[in-house]
Design a protein around this nucleic acid. Structure first.
Length: 863
RNA sequence: GGGGAGAUGGCGAAAUCGGCAGCCGCAUCGGACUUAAAAUCCGAAGGCCGCAAGGCCGUGCGGGUUCGAGUCCCGCUCUCCCCA
């Protein structure tokens, strides 16, 4: 009486794992720590616990890392596999404002729900290391680490034009504003100058770029980070303003084109605009400045857009020409395609060799001068085309005749010698806007004195607790909600006894995730963020898995903080995440009618190979898209597990395709995985019998001789292990499951030949994927301990190749026959066998050439 | 606009050292078992032609390299994702 009962088996083993703390990993110095075991730290990007819970797409990465973690444990690694909550942030607060529920309460509910869901999947996290970024025991150290940045001069306050969202009543980072609307909620945003906390990430630009070479990350992510950092080499050149005595400094990546600069453009916000603008141009200039402020940087930078700008009335001297040379007199304009934050906020314009300058000159009838001759064959100004590539310098005084790279170097030399310029490197990367006028975040541990001084809260006075507030709505004027907690704001500087005011901003949602992988190493420490020993042992993260969506922001911020800690001697590695892996998106089917309108998935039924709308019978087109509530195609793991069990759910998640690929969730495919699980069960257990396991697999069962079907299965087991190892190597775990299914099909054909020793190894291979069933079978077989801690089997090469192998025979590259030859047959023997096998295909033909690839194929080239 | 990834049966996919295209699964069809159905088991199946044997065509499209290309090179089309 042993039918397969997924629920019973899974709840029992989940309870067992919990009560025995089966997946707790030990730190150096703790009882049970094995100093000989190598460590493996496998980390998921921890979730923001939203109210809607996990869907099957989140679970993909978590199941993937779990399968990897479980196998690593079996391979003898001390595995750190933790989970926690990125719990501070805007959505919780928005929700709280809408519902009146305190974010602390909703966060607690949501994290409890997430944890329940994760446990239901049977994930082997070390829950003793669970962390919550909104817990004072955690954010105490976030504040402490912020002070380390502050100490090192990397946190400063500045009046900067920032995105202000009227609806959310807060400033947002550049990356949180899309097309002038907030990423969260899609509310309109405007730019406004405000005093804000900034982090000097630009000070680390060079190292963030260079150290990408140290880490094993997807090239695509590295490219995106390099792009974001945007290093460019060039020169800074000073242009004197006529009649004014002032000077405009520009940055250019093409100092060799100086002699082609026929005008200049300043960012509308550039400080010099005010002083150089002539009286007759003032009205036009000011009107234009006002307009530009409202635009996003993207709109302004868009090269495809028509150029706008106004003349300031002022002229500057191009220093490439002698005083008095009319070619050196260049008009100064302002235009919004020049950004204040990039380079110097001013450019020299070379309309002959820069697309945007060219468009601008065309639009306003400014002079175009050729100073770079295109190489033979390439189109240049002579053909009416703006030439931006490398060529030969012309009309350029001291650098005439030089190829662009040499011309650049010579131009810089020439500028330096005359004291009008120097080599310079700039970055697109900007400093990081780090404050928010919101409630649900880490308070800044800083005190403002009456005299304007700012001092850190002493370390022993941390954490600065977020005050309990009932009304934490943003104020209409944009001032921070914390400013209204009067008792909290007013305090005493413990060092001087003087009254001071607390800083009332909070940190952005990214703050908590800038160091959480370090806290997981030593999560209960109340003397330090983490101990040096723990960090030296566990760091860096060996495998970090998450969506490619975080390619830039989180991963760049995290690297930045980590490098600061490295410089401060707090961590021992220059990079936090040695290997990064991006799991693919889980998409879902959605359905469109003939007009392209989307039809909710629950109103659709299949008809043959097509799909129709239930109500109307209209034929629908099945499309693949992301899961969204509005499409009613979000799938919750709870439902799948309730119907099929966690082992089936895990198998399906992994069987869908390679971990890195995007692939659609197809509910019709899940029963296939369930069938596999049931077939495994029936191979081992006779549901009708008394015995918990078939006698041939029980402890003490006689091991038959390795011959006939048993030998074939033995080879099968070794091949299975080898294929599985390979699958882990490539993260295409679907092929491991395909291999298990293939082996199972073989074993089911000759079940009596399947031995206990083979069965044990099969269960071990199954264990990372379907851990509940594997543990249950392991126990029923009377095997020692838990399969989760058993030693992963090794394939023996002697069993991987059959004595006879099949060789395809081609004639002129076309497959014509297959011949069987001994595995070690000589090429001549293989060719002879192939010639016989090809038979009639060679009759009457002249064999020009024979290609024999040992163990692979034979190809006859004939005429 | 910039950047990234991808395109293989009705569907998810496999074949990454250039060597039998389609392992494994889903859906489909046929058979066995059953009073019947479900479940289970066995079998078929890329397309076209053919009773069959067999042949031809086939990895988004067009070229190229090679004895041999899903895989490498050049050009194109389309899709998805990311950044704003």
């Amino acid at each position: 009486m042993h039918p397969y009962d997924a629920r019973a088996i899974e709840t029992q083993w989940q309870r067992h794992w919990k009560s025995t703390q089966a997946f707790r990993s030990t730190n150096p110095g703790e009882p049970g720590f094995d100093p000989k075991a190598p460590k493996f730290y496998v980390l998921d990007m921890f979730p923001y616990p939203s109210g809607s819970g996990l869907h099957v797409g989140h679970a993909l990465g978590y199941v993937g890392t779990d399968v990897i973690a479980r196998r690593k444990r079996m391979q003898g690694f001390n595995v750190l596999h933790p989970m926690g909550w990125d719990a501070f942030g805007l959505p919780a607060e928005q929700y709280a404002i809408q519902t009146g529920k305190h974010p602390r309460a909703t966060t607690a509910e949501n994290t409890a729900n997430f944890k329940r869901q994760l446990e239901l999947i049977g994930l082997s996290y070390d829950w003793s290391r669970e962390i919550d970024t909104s817990d004072p025991a955690y954010y105490r150290w976030t504040q402490w680490l912020f002070l380390k940045l502050h100490e090192r001069g990397l946190a400063y306050q500045a009046e900067v034009p920032v995105w202000w969202c009227e609806e959310l009543k807060t400033v947002l980072a550049n990356e949180e504003v899309i097309n002038g609307r907030s990423e969260r909620g899609n509310h309109p945003c405007v730019r406004r100058p405000l005093k804000q906390w900034m982090l000097k990430i630009t000070a680390y630009a060079e190292r963030l770029l260079a150290d990408l070479d140290l880490i094993d990350w997807p090239e695509s992510i590295k490219i995106q980070q390099r792009e974001w950092i945007g290093r460019s080499e060039g020169a800074e050149i000073r242009f004197d303003v006529e009649h004014d005595g002032g000077a405009i400094t520009v940055f250019t990546t093409r100092p060799d084109t100086l002699w082609g600069a026929t005008f200049m453009v300043l960012a509308p916000e550039h400080a010099l605009v005010k002083t150089i603008t002539t009286a007759d141009r003032r009205a036009a200039v000011e009107a234009y400045q006002k307009e530009a402020t409202a635009k996003s940087e993207l709109e302004r930078g868009d090269a495809s857009k028509t150029k706008t700008g106004v003349f300031t009335g002022a002229y500057a001297r191009n220093p490439g020409f002698e005083a008095g040379d009319p070619r050196g007199r260049v008009p100064v304009w302002i235009a919004d395609y020049v950004l204040l934050g990039y380079g110097t906020g001013a450019i020299m314009c070379v309309p002959g060799h820069d697309e945007r300058d060219h468009a601008f000159a065309q639009a306003f009838g400014l002079e175009v001068r050729e100073v770079v001759l295109p190489p033979k064959g390439a189109k240049g100004l002579a053909d009416g085309v703006c030439f931006t590539e490398h060529g030969t310098a012309v009309n350029s005084g001291p650098i005439d005749g030089l190829a662009t790279p040499a011309a650049k170097a010579k131009a810089i030399e020439w500028l330096v010698a005359r004291g009008i310029g120097k080599a310079r490197v700039t970055y697109k990367l900007r400093d990081w806007l780090f404050s928010r006028q919101r409630y649900w975040g880490e308070p800044f541990p800083l005190l403002h004195g009456a005299d304007g001084s700012i001092v850190p809260v002493p370390e022993d006075a941390l954490p600065v607790l977020l005050p309990e507030m009932q009304d934490f709505k943003p104020a209409p004027d944009g001032s921070a909600p914390l400013a209204r907690a009067k008792d909290w704001v007013t305090t005493i500087d413990p060092r001087t006894g003087k009254p001071v005011r607390r800083d009332t901003d909070t940190m952005p949602g990214w703050a908590g995730s800038c160091w959480y992988w370090l806290r997981f190493m030593d999560p209960k420490n109340d003397q330090a963020a983490f101990s040096k020993e723990a960090e030296r042992y566990w760091g860096p993260v060996d495998l970090y898995v998450g969506g490619a969506a975080h390619a830039v922001m989180h991963l760049l911020y995290a690297r930045f903080w980590h490098k600061v800690f490295f410089d401060a001697g707090i961590v021992s590695t220059p990079e936090p995440f040695q290997k990064l892996f991006n799991q693919g998106m889980v998409e879902a089917f959605a359905y469109q009618d003939a007009t392209g309108r989307l039809v909710a998935s629950d109103e659709v039924e299949p008809r043959g190979h097509a799909f129709v709308q239930k109500a109307s019978g209209a034929e629908l087109q099945q499309i693949v898209t992301k899961m969204a509530k509005s499409l009613k195609n979000v799938v919750n793991p709870d439902d799948i597990i309730a119907e099929y069990g966690a082992d089936t759910f895990r198998l399906y998640e992994m069987f869908m395709g390679p971990l890195a690929d995007s692939k659609p969730w197809n509910p019709r495919d899940i029963p296939g995985c369930r069938r596999f699980v049931e077939r495994v069960w029936r191979l081992f257990v006779d549901p009708e019998a008394e015995a918990p396991i078939k006698p041939q697999f029980a402890l003490g069962a006689k091991e038959p001789a390795l011959e006939g079907a048993t030998l074939a299965l033995e080879r099968g087991v070794h091949r299975l292990v080898a294929r599985t190892d390979d699958a882990f190597h490539h993260f295409n775990l679907n092929t491991a499951i395909a291999a298990m299914m293939g082996f199972l099909n073989d074993a089911m054909k000759t079940p009596e030949a399947f031995t206990r020793s083979q069965a044990l190894r099969f269960v071990q291979v199954l264990a990372p994927f379907a851990p509940h069933m594997a543990e249950e079978l392991w126990q029923r077989m009377g095997a020692p301990g838990e399969v989760a801690r058993s030693a992963w089997p090794r394939p023996d090469p002697a069993f991987l190749v059959d004595d006879e192998i099949e060789i395809p025979v081609q004639v002129n590259g076309r497959h014509r026959a297959t011949v069987k030859v001994p595995k070690d047959a000589e090429p001549a023997a293989v060719e002879a066998a192939a010639r016989a096998g090809a038979g009639a295909h060679l009759d009457g033909k002249e064999v020009v050439k024979v290609v024999v690839v040992p163990k692979r194929l034979v190809n006859f080239v004939v005429r």
